[in-house]
């Protein structure tokens, strides 16, 4: 089978029922899609197949023969981050980082498809992606900011609108 993965043509030897996740990770050594549950439940393995977000753990590789597969490695590099990647840094949308790759892929498809900055819309598009660290607040903010067309300073991070700061009486410095 032939795949184009992150713009590179690859020939796949794995048997046809092998999951795309296993092919990417174990045969092609592309490790950003994560085996969070291997059952379609968590979203950590999501990749783009011909531009559409797909759970690579649910996808038999034979079903994507000839397709163009994009993982987060194909979206941007440390020197040339995509806007979604920049937003995830600036809005602190990644903590342990394990769900991040799948989320960035899905968010890229959402924004690329003209998705709005409405939190409800974003939530509906990404709700199958689990994150146990962030409580989702900053993920939604990051994606909304991309949808709004913000530009991002990756040397700093943004506070959420939902936070206010006070100092206890007598402890001002």
């Amino acid at each position: 089978m032939e795949l184009t993965v992150n713009s590179v043509a690859r020939t796949v030897q794995s048997p046809p029922l092998t999951s795309l996740l296993t092919v990417l990770r174990e045969e092609l050594d592309i490790t950003s899609p994560k085996a969070g549950c291997e059952s379609g439940g968590c979203g950590a393995c999501t990749v783009l197949v011909d531009g559409q977000p797909r759970r690579s753990c649910l996808t038999a590789v034979c079903a994507v023969d000839g397709a163009e597969v994009t993982t987060v490695e194909g979206l941007g590099t440390p020197e040339d981050l995509s806007r979604v990647q920049q937003a995830f840094i600036h809005h602190y949308a990644a903590q342990c980082g394990f769900c991040t790759d799948g989320l960035i892929v899905a968010a890229t498809a959402y924004v690329g498809g003209g998705g709005s900055d409405d939190t409800g819309d974003i939530g509906e598009a990404l709700a199958g992606h689990y994150c146990r660290c962030t409580g989702y607040v900053k993920i939604l903010e990051a994606v909304a900011a991309v949808a709004r067309g913000d530009t991002f300073d990756t040397a700093s991070t943004a506070s959420s609108a939902n936070n206010t700061y006070v100092t206890i009486a007598g402890a001002e410095s």
């Binding site: 999951s19 291997e38 379609g40 038999a60």
Partner: peptide, 26 residues
């Protein structure tokens, strides 16, 4: 039969089902 694969592929990955031959409907 392999259609969407959303049940069959994970079961296959985890060794919970034996498949001798499959037909993909895509």
């Amino acid at each position: 039969v392999l259609a969407g694969g959303t049940l069959l592929v994970p079961q296959h990955t985890l060794g919970q089902v034996e498949v001798e031959r499959a037909v993909w409907l895509g």
